[in-house]
Amino acid sequence: MIAPKVTPRVVLYEGDSAAPLESSFRGQLMTKILERGFPVTIARSDRQLGSPGSPGREPRMVLGNFSGKLPPAADSTETAGKPLAEFRDISGLDLEAVLSVVDERLADTIDAPSGKRWKPWFPVIDFSRCTNCMQCLSFCLFDVYGATSDGKIQVQNESNCKTDCPACSRVCPEVAIMFPKYKAGPINGDEISSDDVRREGMKVDISALLGGDIYAMLRDRSAKAQSRFSKERDDERALKERQRCLDKLKTTVGNLDVPAEVLSSLPSFDQIQIKADQARQRAQQALAQQAAQKTQ
């Protein structure tokens, strides 16, 4: 389970006791702070400087053109004398200097510097469409999906998902899996047209193909390859064979839009077989749990 993470917030204060920020400076500053991974609030009144007592409220850093005189809220404290927020006067500082202030104080509060953060690419389920058929769980080789104790589908390991790979959404017969950062609809969350539904309906067959035949194809090719390699074990030839399989796979499942990096990093045929069997088993267990729930 992922532990909830509290990220500090930067407040750009432009209330009574601070001069407004220059427009383009404000825009650039907001962009740079957001790119560093921190939420930003534009505050025009003391109300936004922090209300004490909210459990789990994120720490705040308040920046403003205070001209040397911090607002009264800077002296406010939460219980136990903890300051409501840390105030910094940025009067006369240029963009880089302000960002240095932010970095100096907050950089160690995030897991990774900007540019090295995990691209949050993972499936998002539209539960108004999902029928808990477990096709996605059966299909995914990377344990992204799991099931709840009552047999409902759940995205359990987001970071296992292969960046830019939307393949599981294409095997979903209900168009219920979204990748919000995908380029096209309906996978990106766009409205679902009747054409999409019809196409996905056809995917019940395709998903059977994917759930079984892709792996079957890989297994078949594996068996043939093993037979051949048993006669002639040659690394270079094995590599060529693997590449040929991948090219064939790309041709066959090209419309899945699976990135080449994902295809080339697929585990060995034997591992695929094991993973596919495990996934299928978990899906069957979840379906059995669903059935048991219904009979109760």
Binding site: I2, A3, P4, K5, V6, T7, M30, L34, E35, R36, G37, F38, P39, V40, T41, I42, A43, R44, S45, Q48, G56, E58, R117, W118, P120, W121, F122, V124, E158, S159, P180, K181
Partner: peptide, 17 residues
Amino acid sequence: EFDCVPDLCEMSANRDP
């Protein structure tokens, strides 16, 4: 007054409070 967040997807994955 308004609020900005870096990325709702990232916040969702992190279960951001």
